[in-house]
């Protein structure tokens, strides 16, 4: 083994010729697709902001518009199902601009053979979620494809909402001195779904946190000065913090000991070698609020069920602009970076 080094170098994958799963992970590969295909093709000022929703001036009003596709497997998981996810996901994307969600559309792509009983459960679940969020599903579409051409059921929802006067919330609005809040424990949804996948059943169920956040956002904006809101869905809290740091050209510092993670989620992440900071949430938000209004915003959050466990996790700082830094449990420092692709369970 001490003869001249037999060095190794696999052929690098510099370009993908086809879509791989990583293109849907919300990480760097997704960003490359947006940059290389969608942005040049559709280029316009609203799209260029790359927010989860577009805020558009129509007459005297500002309207938020968003769309989201849902392809989760399995269709039913502890704490929710694809229908509830499809309503809440779109409601939350609107709410993250400070908008009041009003109307949703829903398109259903169904695989031949989907049990009608499943469809009934899912539509009832969507109706309940819409009622809870105070929105109406006012239009839709139905398509059926051959067996094998889709995985049981895909749902696409779109939504519009009104942005109240005086509200200006964007990923680019975080300012040094702002306090960073999360509305509750992180990683619940991602681990609920992982724990249902083949071969990975855990004892005791982890429940998805899927929930509408518009009431929480209304309470927060009424209580104080909210600069930035994000719902850290796929990619998790870490990805949202990286994106906000970059969009606002500000530094972010968070304390690992302050980030709330449920014990069972922590245990599942430890077992699989995953980092809860990069695991999906469907009913949580991260907010940057002015220092002076942080106590009032926090109090307002804690009066509502979606914000009962809200807490401060860190600060926006002037140093290291564009970068999110984590203070580790033992006092070390670590830079958070956008993941390339979805996390995978590790071998050891």
């Amino acid at each position: 083994m001490d003869t001249p080094f037999a060095l190794a170098c696999p052929v690098p994958i510099t370009q993908h010729k086809t879509i791989v799963l990583g293109h849907g992970s919300g990480g760097r590969l997704t960003a490359q697709l947006v940059r290389d295909f969608f942005l040049p093709a559709f280029d316009n000022p609203a799209l260029r902001k790359l927010d989860d929703q577009a805020v558009l001036e129509v007459g005297p009003s500002r309207i938020a518009l968003t769309t989201d596709a849902f392809v989760v497997t399995p269709l039913f998981f502890p704490g929710g199902d694809i229908g509830r996810l499809a309503v809440n996901g779109t409601v939350n994307d609107l709410a993250m601009a400070g908008a009041r969600p009003l109307f949703l559309s829903a398109a259903f792509i169904m695989e031949e053979g989907l049990p009608l009983e499943d469809l009934a459960r899912i539509t009832q679940s969507m109706a309940a979620a819409a009622l809870e969020a105070g929105v109406q599903i006012v239009t839709g579409d139905t398509k059926v494809v051959n067996r094998g051409s889709a995985d049981k059921l895909f749902i696409t929802t779109a939504g519009i909402g009104l942005v109240p006067d005086g509200v200006s919330i964007s990923a680019s609005n975080a300012k040094p001195g702002d306090v960073i809040l999360v509305s509750g424990t992180i990683g619940d949804h991602g681990m609920a779904v992982w724990s249902q996948r083949e071969g990975l059943e855990f004892e005791g169920a982890i429940f998805s946190d899927t929930a509408p956040l518009n009431a929480l956002v209304e309470a927060m904006t009424a209580a104080g000065e909210v600069h930035t809101l994000r719902d850290p869905t796929r990619g998790g809290l870490g990805t949202s913090l990286c994106e906000i740091a970059a969009a606002s050209a500000a530094g972010i510092e968070i304390d690992a000991n302050a980030v709330p993670v449920r014990e069972d989620v922590k245990a599942a992440c430890e077992t699989l070698g995953m980092d809860p900071l990069f695991v999906a949430n469907e009913g949580k938000l991260v907010a940057m609020v002015s220092e002076s209004s942080a106590p009032a915003v926090l109090d307002a959050m804690r009066t509502l069920p979606q914000g009962r466990a809200a807490c401060i996790i860190g600060r926006v700082v002037a140093s290291h602009p564009g970068m999110a830094v984590l203070k580790t449990e033992i006092g070390g420092s670590r830079i958070l970076d956008l993941p390339f692709v979805e996390q995978l369970p590790r071998i050891c």
Binding site: V20, L344, P345
Partner: peptide, 16 residues
Amino acid sequence: FGDMLRVPGSNGDLFH
């Protein structure tokens, strides 16, 4: 195991 899927061979990885 999960993390083997991403390891490139001569012609792509297991995801490909």
